[in-house]
Design a protein around this nucleic acid. Structure first.
Lengths: 171, 171
DNA sequence: GCAGATCGTATGTTATAGCTTATTATTTGT
DNA sequence: ACAAATAATAAGCTATAACATACGATCTGC
C-alpha cells in the first residue's frame, strides 16, 4: 500500500541544477533592466509592503545586515525605493518601493516568468498544475519551517531555529 | 484562454531556498556515513555504470577535473570505488563502484529520501504525483538543454552549448 | 544630562569555490 | 627513436561570500 515503485532521484539532485539554470536565465533579464539579483530581491520584498528598519529587511530576505547597504544605495539613487529617516527615531530608515520601482519590478518579473513558461510548457497540464501547487505550498514555508520539516518531520512543535549542521567530514 | 489567474512567485525564488534546505538536510546524513557531498555525487554517477577516464567523470557531474582527485583518493582508500589503470592505456584510470560502495550509496540515499518524504507529505496526493513527475522530466534534461529551453524556448534546434551570460551590472 | 543600548555604516578577516598553470607519465604518429 | 598530444596530478591565484569588528549618530531610562 506504500505504492512507491520506481526509484526516484534525490530532490536536491534535480532541483540544484534546475535552480542554477533558472538563476542563470534570470541574470540577463536583470542586467537588461539595470538590476542585480539582490536589488530585485529587495524590490520584491518591499513590494509586499514597507519595512521599518534595514535590519528587518535584511532578515526578511536572509541577507546580511551590512550587505544590503550598497544595494539600497543604488536602488535609492535610481529612484526605485524611498529610504527616509523615521521622524520618530532618526536612527532607523523607513524603506518603501516607489511607483517607478513597482513598474520596474513588474517588468523584470514579466521577463523572468516569460522564460520560465518555456520550461513549464514541457509538462503535461495536469503535472504542471501539481508542480505549481506544490511550489505554492513550499513558498509559504519559512526557512526554519523547511528545515524542521525535513530534519524531524515534527510539525511546528520542535525548536525551529536551534539546530544547525556545519560538520563536513571526509571519507 | 491563457487561464493564468493568480500571480505566481518566480520559480527560482521558491526553489533556491528549498534546494538549500534540502542540501542542509543531506549534510548530516552524509557525515554520518563518512561521505562528502562530492563523494556521494561520484558514487551516484558510478552507480549508473563504470567510467573510463576521470575527466569524463568530472564532466558528467559538472565538476572540475582537478577537483575530484582528492575525492577519488578518499573513496578509493575507503574501498568504495575501484580505480585501476587501463591495461590498454596506462594513462587513464578505469573507475567503478565497488559492492561496498553500492551498499553505502544505497544507505545514504535511503536516509536522504526518508527526510525528503516529510516534505512530500505536506502535499496532497495528486499534487505530489504531479510534482514528482515534473521533477522526473527535468531530471532527464542536461544542463545545456535546461538553459536553451529557458532562454529561447527553441526545442533542440538552437546551439545548446554556445550562449553564456556573465555580465552583472549594477543599478 | 549621562550611561547604556540600538541603528546604520565602514572596514577587515577568513573560508571557499573556480580557474589557471605547470609537471610527470604515457601513448600515438611519423 | 623522437615529437606532439593526452591523462592524471599538484600547486597557486583570484574572486566572492560569510562572518566579525568597530565607530558615529541617535534614542531611552534614570
Amino acid at each position: 500500500m506504500t505504492g512507491q515503485d520506481a526509484a526516484r532521484p534525490d530532490l536536491a539532485a534535480v532541483l540544484h541544477p534546475l535552480t542554477q539554470a533558472l538563476i542563470d536565465a534570470e541574470l540577463p533579464v536583470l542586467a537588461a533592466h539595470g538590476l542585480t539579483m539582490w536589488g530585485y530581491v529587495v524590490l520584491n520584498a518591499l513590494d509586499g509592503g514597507p519595512v521599518r528598519t534595514q535590519a528587518a529587511l535584511a532578515e526578511q530576505i536572509s541577507a546580511d545586515k551590512t550587505r544590503i547597504i550598497s544595494t539600497l544605495d543604488r536602488l535609492q539613487a535610481a529612484g526605485l525605493i524611498s529610504r527616509q529617516p523615521d521622524p520618530d527615531d532618526r536612527r532607523v530608515r523607513l524603506l518603501a518601493i516607489t511607483p517607478a520601482g513597482q513598474s520596474r519590478r513588474a517588468a523584470v518579473q514579466a521577463g523572468i516568468q516569460a522564460n520560465e513558461e518555456h520550461l513549464l510548457a514541457l509538462l503535461p497540464a495536469a503535472d504542471r498544475q501539481g508542480f505549481l501547487r506544490a511550489l505554492l505550498v513550499y513558498a509559504g514555508l519559512s526557512r526554519a519551517e523547511l528545515t524542521s520539516t525535513l530534519q524531524a518531520g515534527s510539525t511546528s512543535t520542535g525548536s525551529p531555529t536551534a539546530i544547525r549542521p556545519g560538520a563536513t567530514t571526509e571519507p
